[in-house]
Amino acid sequence: MPAAEPFCPACTAVQPPGQADHFARLGFARAYDVDPAAVERRYFELQRRLHPDRFATKSPKERALSQAQATSLNDAYETLMDPLGRAVYLLRLSGIDTGGDGKTVDDPALLMEAMEMREALAEARTPAEVDALVGRARAEAEACRVALARLFAGGDLAAAGKATLRLTYLDKLLDDARARRLNVA
């Protein structure tokens, strides 16, 4: 397991966060499949050791380093716990920019599906109609996550990129559905 320990193993003094990736920072291998409970345990354990109270009597330099470590740790935690963020980050580590580099989406089937679902959501008039769409989107998002684990494990980054884009659209729809649910309730 690659680990980027925030403390010196010899003298236990806090270290600069350095350039470790989000996976290494929490002691995980670079993979899409991570155990959220394990991420959570590791995160809270490290945050406890980096708590500002523990550095109240330390030097200003150590206080600053502990804060920098805590910030890096938060970034790592948020990325690893978010199925979409984790996919985007894994692709970025492989040099793939999911932002499209200013280009628009070149996947007509995906766009048609996204437009159709967003139109259906905009036209939903009852909570039950919104819930039906949310149910469908959640099931498809779950299928995307299962596919992503397989695709990243198999090193098929092109297909992982496509699945990530699809998950981006599904997540956006689910965000909108939350707002829509309040409007029709």
Binding site: T98, G99, G100, K103, T104, V105, D107, P108, L110, L111, M112, A114, M115, R118, L165, T168, Y169, D171, K172, L173
Partner: peptide, 13 residues
């Protein structure tokens, strides 16, 4: 014309 922004999940027809 149907286009989309990959970063934010916007879709435009």
């Amino acid at each position: 014309g149907l286009v989309g922004a990959p970063a934010c999940g916007d879709v435009m027809k």
